[in-house]
Amino acid sequence: MNSDLQQRLVQLLESERKQLLQYACYRTGVMQDAEDAVQDAVTKILHLEGPIANLRGYFYQTVAHACIDIVRQRQRQQTEGIEIMQLWHREQHDEFSQEFRRINEMLSQIPEEQSEVIRLRFYADKSFADIAEMLDLPLATVKSRFLYGMSKMKKSLTPKIN
C-alpha cells in the first residue's frame, strides 16, 4: 500500500469529513448511502498504484461515482421489487429527505458539468478556486458553468404562462 497516498488521504478525510459526507448526502439522499459511498471511495483509492497528483479532486470524483452507482443500484432494486420492505423503511419522510428530493429535481434539469460545480460549491463547501483546481479547469470556466446552471434553474422556477 502506498503510504504517502494513505497519509494524504487521511489528512483529507480528517479535514473534510463533514463536507465529504454532506456532498455525498446530496447525491444519494440517504446518510447511510453517503457513508457507504465515502467508504467505497476510500477503499478504491487505497488500492491504487502510482501517484495521484490531484487527490482531492480525484477523491470527490470517486465519491461521486460511488454515489451514482449506489443510486443506480437502488433504482434497479426498486424496479425489480427487491427488498421492498427494507427500502420502504429507508424511504424517509423527514425534512432532509424532502429537501433532498426537491434539490435533486432542480439539479437534474441542468447538465451534469454545471450541477457538479454547484454541488461542490454548496454541499462540499468549496470555493470556485478550489473547484477549478479539483476539476482541473480554468477559474473562469468554473464560474461560468455555475452561472449558466443557476440561470437555467432560475428560468425554470418561474412557470411560463401560455
Binding site: 446518510m31 432532509f96 432542480m106 443557476m150 432560475k154
Partner: peptide, 22 residues
C-alpha cells in the same frame, strides 16, 4: 436577486450531517 433565490433554494438547511452524529 433571482440567482440568490435559486441559491437559497439549493443551500442545505436540513443537513443530516451533524457533528453530533459524526
Amino acid at each position: 436577486e433571482a440567482l440568490k433565490e435559486v441559491a437559497d433554494d439549493l443551500l442545505p438547511k436540513h443537513s443530516p450531517v451533524q457533528e453530533k452524529q459524526i
